[in-house]
Computed example of a mutant assay.
Amino acid sequence: MSVLAAIAVLAVLIIVHELGHFAAARAQGIHVNRFSIGFGPALWKYQGERTEYAVRVFPLGGFVGFPDDDPDSPIPPDDPNLLQNRPIVDRAIVISAGVIANFLFAYVLLTAQVGIFGVPNLYPGVAVPQLAEVADSPARAAGLEPGDVILAVGAEPLAEGEAAVETLQQAIQRSPNLPLELTVLRDGERLNPVVTPRADEEGNGRIGVFLSVRGESVDGELAFRRPNGIGEIIAAGAAEYQRIFQLTFEGFGRLIGNFSESADQIAGPVAIVAVGANIASNDAGGLFRFAALISINLGIINILPLPVLDGGQLVFLGIEALRGKPLPSKIREGIMQTGVVMLLGLAIFLVIRDTANLGAVQEMFNN
C-alpha cells in the first residue's frame, strides 16, 4: 500500500502540472483537444464537448494536446484561438502555468500538513541525538555527548526548528580546521566546548554528529500541538515552503556547478517511489512534505531551458520575440527530437540504475 501511495503522489503532481497548462489555455479561450494522464495505450477515454480526456497505461507522465498539431482537426489553421496564433504573452502563460501550478500546490500541501497534523512544540537550540561511529571525530575530541543540546555557536544563539539546524550546519561547514566555541546544555549545566571541524573531500567542515530539532517529545517522537488559528497555519506553511524551496534551489545549483561529483544524486521515478513508500509507511504527515518537495523539484526541472521541457518552449518563444518570427520548423523539430532522445535515454538509465539499487533486487541477486 505504501508503494501505491507513493505512485499516487507522483500521479497527482503530474495531474496538477497538466491541469495548470489546461486551465491557463481554457481561461484564455484557447482550443485544447486532449488532456491525458500517462503515456502509451489508453485505458480509459471520454470525449467531452471540446476535449478528449484519457488515462493511459504508464502513469508517470501526461500531456495537454492542442489541435495545432493535429492534421485531422476540423479547426481551420487561421483560427485566432489556436495556440500558435495567439500572442507570445498568451502562449508563455500557457507554457509556464504547469510550473506555477506545481509551486502553488506545494504550498497548499505544506499548509494542509500543518492544519491536519499540527505544529511541533519546539524549543531554541539543536539536539545531538547521537555521535557518528568515528573514534577520533572532532565532536568526541571536544567532549560532546549524545543528549547534548547546542544553544549557540560562537556568539550567535540558535533559534528553533529546522532553521536552527541549518544555521549550525552552515557554521560547521564554513569552518574547516577553524575552532568553534559552542554553548552546550547538558543535564541543566551550560558548557563551552571548542570543536575544530575537519575538512571533508569537498573542503566542507565536519565534526561527526547527528543533529535534530529540539522540541517536546512523546515516546521518542516529536510532539505536535494544534495551531493557533489560520494565521499560524499560513505562516508555518510559508516558512516550510521557503525552506524547502531554498534547499532545493541550492541543490540544483550544486548539481549544475559540480555535475561530475553530484550526478549520482540524481534520482529517477523508481528511487522516488522507493523513498516515498518508506515515508508513507512510517509517517503520514511526512508524505505531505515529500509530495511538496517533489512538486517543487518538478516545477524547477520543467522550467530548465532544455528541449521538450517547458523551459525549452519558453526559450523558443524568446527567440521568436527577438527574431520577430518563429524558428524554421525543421530546426525546431530537430532540436525537439534530440531532446526527446536524450530525455528518454536518461529516464531509461535512471530506471535501470535505481531498480538495481533497490534493496530487494540486490538481496535477490546476492542469494
Rank of each mutant, 00 (worst) to 15 (best):
S2M: 11
I7C: 10
V9N: 02
A11R: 12
L13F: 10
I15E: 05
E18C: 00
E18A: 01
G20Q: 02
H31Q: 04
G38S: 00
L43M: 04
Q47Y: 06
E49I: 09
A54G: 00
V55N: 01
V64W: 12
P71C: 03
P71F: 03
P74N: 06
I75D: 04
L83V: 04
N85Q: 05
R86N: 02
R91Y: 15
A92M: 10
A97W: 11
A97C: 08
N102K: 09
F105T: 02
A106Y: 09
Y107C: 09
L110Q: 08
L110E: 06
T111M: 13
A112R: 12
V114M: 13
N121W: 14
L122C: 07
G125F: 15
V126K: 06
E133D: 15
V134I: 15
D136A: 09
P138R: 13
A142M: 11
G147L: 07
D148G: 12
A152P: 02
A155M: 14
A155V: 15
P157M: 08
I172A: 02
Q173V: 09
R174G: 08
P176V: 00
L182Q: 01
L182N: 03
E189F: 15
R190Y: 04
P193D: 13
V195M: 08
G203N: 13
I207V: 12
V209P: 13
S217T: 12
F224E: 00
R225W: 05
N228F: 07
I234N: 11
A239F: 15
Y241G: 02
Q242L: 11
L247E: 03
E250V: 14
G251R: 07
N258H: 05
S260Y: 12
E261Y: 15
Q265N: 13
I266D: 07
A267M: 10
V270I: 14
V273C: 04
G276A: 04
A277R: 04
A277F: 00
R289H: 10
F290S: 05
A291F: 00
L293V: 04
I300Q: 04
I301D: 03
I301M: 09
I301W: 06
P305L: 03
L306N: 06
L306W: 10
L306T: 06
G311V: 03
G311H: 08
G312W: 02
G312A: 02
L314F: 05
F316K: 05
E320P: 00
R323S: 03
K325L: 07
P328C: 14
K330M: 11
I331N: 06
L343D: 01
I348Y: 11
F349W: 09
L350R: 01
T355C: 07
N357M: 07
Q362I: 13
E363H: 09
